[in-house]
Simulated assay, not measured.
Amino acid sequence: MSLNSIFQYFVPKDKKFFPLFEQAGANLIVMAKALKESVYTTDLSRRAELNKKIEDLEHKGDDITHQIHLELGKNFITPFDREDIHSLASSLDDVADFIQGASNRMELYKVETPSQAMKEIADLILEATDHVAKALNELRDLKNIRNITDSCVRINSVENKADYIFDKAMSELFEYEKDAITLIKTKEVLSAMEDATDKCEDVANVLESILVKNA
Protein backbone atom coordinates (compact mmCIF):
# COMPACT_ATOMS: atom_id res chain seq x y z
CA MET A 1 0.00 0.00 0.00
CA SER A 2 1.38 3.39 -0.98
CA LEU A 3 2.07 6.16 1.55
CA ASN A 4 -0.65 8.20 -0.15
CA SER A 5 -3.17 5.37 0.42
CA ILE A 6 -2.27 5.16 4.11
CA PHE A 7 -2.79 8.90 4.54
CA GLN A 8 -6.27 8.58 3.03
CA TYR A 9 -7.48 6.69 6.11
CA PHE A 10 -6.86 9.77 8.24
CA VAL A 11 -8.14 12.60 6.04
CA PRO A 12 -11.65 13.84 5.19
CA LYS A 13 -13.32 12.87 1.92
CA ASP A 14 -11.89 14.73 -1.04
CA LYS A 15 -13.88 17.84 -1.97
CA LYS A 16 -11.82 19.02 -4.92
CA PHE A 17 -10.89 16.29 -7.39
CA PHE A 18 -14.11 14.26 -7.46
CA PRO A 19 -16.36 17.25 -8.29
CA LEU A 20 -13.95 18.25 -11.07
CA PHE A 21 -13.97 14.77 -12.58
CA GLU A 22 -17.77 14.71 -12.39
CA GLN A 23 -17.91 18.07 -14.15
CA ALA A 24 -15.61 16.74 -16.86
CA GLY A 25 -17.84 13.70 -17.35
CA ALA A 26 -21.01 15.79 -17.56
CA ASN A 27 -19.32 18.12 -20.04
CA LEU A 28 -18.45 15.19 -22.32
CA ILE A 29 -22.09 14.08 -22.41
CA VAL A 30 -23.23 17.55 -23.49
CA MET A 31 -20.54 17.59 -26.18
CA ALA A 32 -21.56 14.13 -27.42
CA LYS A 33 -25.22 15.14 -27.58
CA ALA A 34 -24.32 18.22 -29.61
CA LEU A 35 -22.17 16.12 -31.96
CA LYS A 36 -25.02 13.65 -32.44
CA GLU A 37 -27.43 16.46 -33.28
CA SER A 38 -24.87 17.89 -35.70
CA VAL A 39 -24.46 14.56 -37.48
CA TYR A 40 -28.20 14.01 -37.77
CA THR A 41 -28.96 17.44 -39.21
CA THR A 42 -28.49 18.54 -42.81
CA ASP A 43 -28.98 22.20 -41.89
CA LEU A 44 -25.50 23.67 -42.35
CA SER A 45 -26.31 26.83 -40.38
CA ARG A 46 -27.49 24.74 -37.43
CA ARG A 47 -24.38 22.60 -37.70
CA ALA A 48 -22.25 25.74 -37.54
CA GLU A 49 -24.05 26.74 -34.33
CA LEU A 50 -23.48 23.30 -32.85
CA ASN A 51 -19.82 23.35 -33.85
CA LYS A 52 -19.38 26.65 -31.99
CA LYS A 53 -21.15 25.16 -28.97
CA ILE A 54 -18.87 22.11 -29.03
CA GLU A 55 -15.82 24.35 -29.35
CA ASP A 56 -16.92 26.33 -26.29
CA LEU A 57 -17.52 23.10 -24.35
CA GLU A 58 -14.07 21.85 -25.33
CA HIS A 59 -12.60 25.05 -23.87
CA LYS A 60 -14.64 24.42 -20.72
CA GLY A 61 -13.11 20.93 -20.57
CA ASP A 62 -9.64 22.46 -20.92
CA ASP A 63 -10.40 24.72 -17.95
CA ILE A 64 -11.48 21.72 -15.85
CA THR A 65 -8.31 19.84 -16.79
CA HIS A 66 -6.21 22.88 -15.89
CA GLN A 67 -7.96 23.14 -12.53
CA ILE A 68 -7.25 19.46 -11.79
CA HIS A 69 -3.57 20.02 -12.53
CA LEU A 70 -3.55 23.12 -10.29
CA GLU A 71 -5.08 21.10 -7.45
CA LEU A 72 -2.42 18.43 -7.93
CA GLY A 73 0.22 21.08 -7.42
CA LYS A 74 -1.45 22.49 -4.29
CA ASN A 75 -2.46 19.28 -2.48
CA PHE A 76 0.01 16.94 -0.83
CA ILE A 77 -2.62 14.29 -0.13
CA THR A 78 -4.80 13.10 -3.02
CA PRO A 79 -7.72 10.61 -3.14
CA PHE A 80 -5.63 8.20 -5.24
CA ASP A 81 -2.22 8.15 -6.92
CA ARG A 82 -1.14 11.44 -8.42
CA GLU A 83 -0.08 9.76 -11.68
CA ASP A 84 -3.55 8.25 -12.05
CA ILE A 85 -5.21 11.61 -11.43
CA HIS A 86 -3.02 13.12 -14.12
CA SER A 87 -3.69 10.24 -16.53
CA LEU A 88 -7.43 10.36 -15.92
CA ALA A 89 -7.59 14.11 -16.48
CA SER A 90 -5.52 13.83 -19.66
CA SER A 91 -7.59 10.97 -21.09
CA LEU A 92 -10.83 12.86 -20.44
CA ASP A 93 -9.35 15.89 -22.18
CA ASP A 94 -8.45 13.69 -25.16
CA VAL A 95 -12.07 12.54 -25.52
CA ALA A 96 -13.21 16.16 -25.66
CA ASP A 97 -10.48 17.01 -28.18
CA PHE A 98 -11.58 14.32 -30.63
CA ILE A 99 -15.28 15.07 -30.29
CA GLN A 100 -14.46 18.68 -31.10
CA GLY A 101 -12.15 17.52 -33.88
CA ALA A 102 -14.90 15.46 -35.53
CA SER A 103 -17.33 18.36 -35.32
CA ASN A 104 -14.78 20.81 -36.68
CA ARG A 105 -13.95 18.60 -39.65
CA MET A 106 -17.62 18.30 -40.55
CA GLU A 107 -17.89 22.08 -40.47
CA LEU A 108 -14.65 22.81 -42.33
CA TYR A 109 -15.26 20.20 -45.03
CA LYS A 110 -18.93 21.20 -45.44
CA VAL A 111 -20.17 17.62 -45.15
CA GLU A 112 -23.68 18.08 -46.51
CA THR A 113 -25.03 14.57 -45.98
CA PRO A 114 -23.40 12.66 -43.09
CA SER A 115 -23.12 8.94 -43.75
CA GLN A 116 -24.97 6.24 -41.85
CA ALA A 117 -21.66 5.18 -40.29
CA MET A 118 -21.18 8.72 -38.92
CA LYS A 119 -24.61 8.58 -37.34
CA GLU A 120 -23.97 5.17 -35.81
CA ILE A 121 -20.60 6.16 -34.36
CA ALA A 122 -22.06 9.43 -33.04
CA ASP A 123 -24.65 7.32 -31.20
CA LEU A 124 -21.84 5.19 -29.77
CA ILE A 125 -19.83 8.24 -28.67
CA LEU A 126 -22.83 9.43 -26.68
CA GLU A 127 -23.27 5.97 -25.17
CA ALA A 128 -19.58 5.76 -24.25
CA THR A 129 -19.49 9.21 -22.63
CA ASP A 130 -22.58 8.31 -20.62
CA HIS A 131 -20.77 5.26 -19.22
CA VAL A 132 -17.66 7.37 -18.58
CA ALA A 133 -19.71 9.87 -16.56
CA LYS A 134 -21.39 7.09 -14.57
CA ALA A 135 -18.02 5.59 -13.67
CA LEU A 136 -16.63 8.99 -12.64
CA ASN A 137 -19.64 9.57 -10.39
CA GLU A 138 -18.85 6.31 -8.59
CA LEU A 139 -15.25 7.33 -7.83
CA ARG A 140 -16.29 9.13 -4.65
CA ASP A 141 -16.96 5.75 -3.06
CA LEU A 142 -14.57 3.10 -4.32
CA LYS A 143 -16.65 0.49 -2.49
CA ASN A 144 -18.91 0.44 -5.56
CA ILE A 145 -16.24 -1.27 -7.62
CA ARG A 146 -18.80 -3.42 -9.44
CA ASN A 147 -20.53 -0.33 -10.86
CA ILE A 148 -17.28 1.18 -12.12
CA THR A 149 -16.18 -2.15 -13.58
CA ASP A 150 -19.52 -2.56 -15.33
CA SER A 151 -19.16 0.89 -16.90
CA CYS A 152 -15.63 0.06 -18.06
CA VAL A 153 -16.80 -3.19 -19.66
CA ARG A 154 -19.57 -1.32 -21.46
CA ILE A 155 -17.13 1.33 -22.69
CA ASN A 156 -14.89 -1.40 -24.12
CA SER A 157 -17.91 -3.00 -25.82
CA VAL A 158 -18.91 0.33 -27.37
CA GLU A 159 -15.37 0.88 -28.64
CA ASN A 160 -15.39 -2.56 -30.28
CA LYS A 161 -18.67 -1.75 -32.03
CA ALA A 162 -17.23 1.55 -33.26
CA ASP A 163 -14.16 -0.25 -34.60
CA TYR A 164 -16.36 -2.65 -36.54
CA ILE A 165 -18.52 0.12 -38.01
CA PHE A 166 -15.44 2.17 -38.91
CA ASP A 167 -13.65 -0.74 -40.61
CA LYS A 168 -16.78 -1.72 -42.55
CA ALA A 169 -17.38 1.89 -43.59
CA MET A 170 -13.79 2.25 -44.78
CA SER A 171 -14.02 -0.94 -46.80
CA GLU A 172 -17.22 0.21 -48.51
CA LEU A 173 -15.88 3.74 -48.99
CA PHE A 174 -12.77 2.61 -50.87
CA GLU A 175 -14.75 0.07 -52.88
CA TYR A 176 -17.69 2.21 -53.99
CA GLU A 177 -16.85 5.91 -53.62
CA LYS A 178 -15.47 7.24 -56.89
CA ASP A 179 -15.10 10.89 -55.90
CA ALA A 180 -11.71 11.35 -54.22
CA ILE A 181 -12.69 14.53 -52.35
CA THR A 182 -15.80 12.94 -50.85
CA LEU A 183 -13.74 9.90 -49.89
CA ILE A 184 -11.15 12.01 -48.06
CA LYS A 185 -13.77 14.12 -46.26
CA THR A 186 -15.69 11.06 -45.09
CA LYS A 187 -12.55 9.24 -43.97
CA GLU A 188 -11.28 12.23 -41.98
CA VAL A 189 -14.56 12.72 -40.10
CA LEU A 190 -15.02 9.02 -39.37
CA SER A 191 -11.41 8.72 -38.18
CA ALA A 192 -11.85 11.52 -35.64
CA MET A 193 -15.13 10.03 -34.42
CA GLU A 194 -13.66 6.56 -34.06
CA ASP A 195 -10.67 8.05 -32.22
CA ALA A 196 -13.10 9.60 -29.72
CA THR A 197 -14.34 6.12 -28.80
CA ASP A 198 -10.73 4.94 -28.51
CA LYS A 199 -10.08 7.74 -26.03
CA CYS A 200 -13.13 6.68 -24.00
CA GLU A 201 -11.53 3.25 -23.79
CA ASP A 202 -8.34 4.92 -22.53
CA VAL A 203 -10.45 6.48 -19.74
CA ALA A 204 -11.76 3.01 -18.88
CA ASN A 205 -8.20 1.66 -18.75
CA VAL A 206 -7.14 4.37 -16.28
CA LEU A 207 -10.21 3.71 -14.13
CA GLU A 208 -9.43 -0.02 -14.06
CA SER A 209 -5.87 0.80 -12.99
CA ILE A 210 -7.23 2.93 -10.13
CA LEU A 211 -9.50 0.07 -9.04
CA VAL A 212 -6.61 -2.40 -8.98
CA LYS A 213 -4.42 -0.10 -6.90
CA ASN A 214 -7.17 0.71 -4.41
CA ALA A 215 -8.72 -2.76 -4.08
Rank of each mutant, 00 (worst) to 15 (best):
E22F: 05
E208V: 14
V206I: 09
Y176M: 10
L124S: 02
T197S: 08
E22Q: 15
I184N: 01
R47L: 07
S38A: 13
L211R: 02
A133E: 12
A34L: 04
I77Y: 05
A26K: 09
K134R: 14
T149Y: 04
F98G: 02
V30K: 04
A135H: 00
I77S: 09
A26C: 07
S115C: 08
L70H: 05
V206Q: 00
L57K: 14
L88W: 10
I85G: 02
Q23C: 08
E83Q: 14
D14H: 08
K13M: 05
S171L: 12
S157E: 12
I77V: 15
E107F: 14
S5T: 14
T65I: 03
G101E: 13
K36D: 03
A48W: 03
D97G: 04
A196H: 00
I125L: 01
I181Y: 02
D195E: 09
R105C: 08
I145E: 12
R105G: 06
L173C: 00
P114I: 11
S115M: 03
E58A: 12
Q23G: 12
I68F: 00
P12T: 04
V11Q: 06
F76W: 07
K13Y: 04
N104R: 14
L35D: 09
L50F: 09
Y109V: 02
I181F: 10
F76D: 01
V203L: 01
M31Y: 07
V39G: 04
V206M: 09
E208F: 14
D167S: 11
A169I: 08
V111G: 00
L139F: 07
D56F: 14
S157P: 01
E37D: 15
L57C: 06
L136W: 05
D163Y: 08
K13S: 05
K199I: 01
T113I: 15
A117E: 12
A204L: 02
E22R: 14
E22T: 11
D195C: 13
L3M: 11
